[in-house]
Design a protein around this nucleic acid. Sequence first.
DNA 1: CGCAACATACCAACCGGTTGGTATGTTGTC
DNA 2: GACAACATACCAACCGGTTGGTATGTTGCG
Lengths: 206, 206
Amino acid sequence: MPLTRTAPARTKLLDAALTLIREKGYSATSVDELCQAAGVTKGAFFHHFESKEALGAAAADHWSEVTGAMFASADYHRKADPLSRVLGYIELRKSLLEGEPAEFTCVAGTMVQEQFGASDDIRTACRNSIFGHAATLEADIDAAIAAYGLSPDWTAKSLALHSQAVLQGAFILAKASSDKDVARDMVDHLSRYVRSLFPSPPAQEA
Amino acid sequence: MPLTRTAPARTKLLDAALTLIREKGYSATSVDELCQAAGVTKGAFFHHFESKEALGAAAADHWSEVTGAMFASADYHRKADPLSRVLGYIELRKSLLEGEPAEFTCVAGTMVQEQFGASDDIRTACRNSIFGHAATLEADIDAAIAAYGLSPDWTAKSLALHSQAVLQGAFILAKASSDKDVARDMVDHLSRYVRSLFPSPPAQEA
DNA sequence: CGCAACATACCAACCGGTTGGTATGTTGTC
DNA sequence: GACAACATACCAACCGGTTGGTATGTTGCG
């Protein structure tokens, strides 16, 4: 029995929001455009979201779920050495810099840059997305600190956030220059920095 | 004779644009708001700018001039050691992270994030602002490379751009968290990275 | 005068949001 | 298991306000 023949309107709207917000930003994306891209009517929009602002916050949460699932299933978690996991994460981020800026940039970073002063719900959802993602790196960084017997004057949390800052900044430079290679160079610097914080490069392993 | 009792409308509009774009972003800032903030009428606006887009591009150029003058007159240029100049620049950037995000963030970075796909004039003006500012660091970095006799596998240009990426990313994290201390931590990591690239810390000097 | 620098008044298109409505479940009760 | 009561999901048409932009003054100075 074909119970759910098509995706529900809410999901289609959230998926469309991720695309459109990355392409044009939040403010420049109208509710009508969202509905057209999702193939639903405005009535459906306001049935599922009480306002455009509510959709923006929900889109940031949706982004957290989509990207969270993707990174959770990535290969770099399987490495035994914690520093290799951290560097593997960074290499993965570099490998994702493909295609047009709108295809590899961050919805949360894009949206919070515009809306941080206008909507606290959106700001909080974007903060949770970015800081929550950074938190998934913290354990590996802490494990690497322990494995190398370091007592650094920086914290695993701040280094995890730094990696996000470099990526967000790389996205801006890529957008400004229409050149993803610039962003890749920034990630290389990040990788070099992380390696500099630990005494010796880890041995290659599967 | 009171020839120019007040600033001309064009300048007032550009100054208002810098403030409003940092506070609310480009798309969410209306022409009417711009005119009200500048204390001029819409007729004056479209007398000086043929469109809102033209004002956006002009605002990015204006931002380049304002910030360019500020950094050109900064103290860090007076240090004899080139690495000290680079680190002095970074410390200056850290010291500028004061007050609300809208007071210390970058107009060009904010605007290009929204408008990179919609307006090539704005995108180019923002790219020139960011990349032009980065270029002012390149000579000092190259001089530091020479002074330390380095043959690095990175370029002065990419390191200069990396510093801009870290700053732009730090702005996003500060906006997302409403916490400038996060941004300061990112700049500390940048400073630590730059120091790691050169063999020994430079001696303190005036 | 002549022309740049503004101001006033206005417009069509578009904005986010609301309305009244329908079709299709789901649930509680006897 | 049948039927009323209700909930969910969605739609087409519409609303008042705001948008970027224009057309037409007015003013002041060389």
